[in-house]
């Protein structure tokens, strides 16, 4: 069972770290001061979630400490989906990505509050409130911008179309799917995806946007198995630049 658990924790932690890292890039250059603060707080929350998940891997499952897992792991061992690896692009992409990702995240954590794996159930209960805010924030902006000007509406639609098949890649199944379900650890990606669609469709409609058509063959899978977009490697090289600049025992 520990391999199934590790797989689940790594993909969640890596998703949170990479999207948090990406969103932190907006700190200081956001579209307005208030939103700069909000986006930055949510980036910090995500990075905090990654740290907490790595800590469970360390405390309970015998993996290395959080800093080592985040800053000293090879790209192919990362399990994040390719949605979170994409560059921040313009603000419309970043807000749409946040909207699609955070709805999945909120439902995932909500499901995990029932997990038979106690450390994860406890963490889920603890951070659910934070993600609830992330979703509230995303919904507010998607609705305002979708119903804003012609330009904002067009931008959101374009980004939604672009992000759609990347977002469906969030739900890439792992080889341990059945174990996780039968052990009541996590009710599975299929269930998560079903609930996610139910949740986001009415909001996309309220934002006067069109729901992109799903083409199964275009869904971007691979991330969960260690196959990443061209963007992850440079992201990790940048993130680890300082760590790699000195002897391995240096403390920062």
């Amino acid at each position: 069972m520990s391999n199934a658990l590790k797989d689940l924790l790594f993909k969640m932690a890596d998703d949170a770290l990479i999207i948090g890292h990406r969103n932190s890039e907006w700190t200081g250059i956001g579209p307005m001061l208030e939103e700069d603060l909000a986006f930055s707080s949510m980036a910090q929350d995500k990075i905090g979630h990654a740290q907490a998940l790595y800590k469970i891997l360390n405390d309970v499952l015998g993996e290395a400490d959080a800093d080592t897992l985040a800053f000293k792991r090879e790209e192919k061992n990362f399990k994040c989906c390719q949605l979170v690896e994409q560059p921040i692009g313009e603000y419309d992409f970043s807000i749409v990505r946040q909207f699609l990702f955070d709805h999945a995240e909120l439902i995932r954590y909500d499901m995990l509050t029932q997990s038979s794996f106690q450390p994860l159930a406890q963490l889920a209960k603890k951070v659910k409130g934070e993600i609830k805010y992330h979703v509230m924030h995303a919904d507010t902006f998607v609705k305002l911008l979708g119903n804003g000007t012609e330009e904002s509406k067009a931008r959101l639609q374009t980004s939604l179309n672009y992000a759609w098949h990347l977002a469906l890649g969030i739900f890439e199944k792992s080889e341990f799917e059945n174990d996780l379900i039968s052990e009541n650890i996590f009710a599975g990606e299929e269930e998560l995806k079903k609930r996610w669609l139910q949740k986001i469709i009415p909001i996309i409609e309220a934002a006067s946007l069109k729901i992109p058509a799903t083409d199964e063959s275009k869904i971007v899978y691979g991330g969960r198995k260690g196959f990443h977009s061209e963007y992850l490697k440079p992201l990790l090289d940048e993130m680890c630049e300082v760590v790699r600049s000195d002897e391995a025992t240096a403390e920062w």
Partner: peptide
């Protein structure tokens, strides 16, 4: 939006 912004 004011509430969402005020929180942070």
């Amino acid at each position: 939006m004011a509430l969402v912004m005020a929180k942070e």
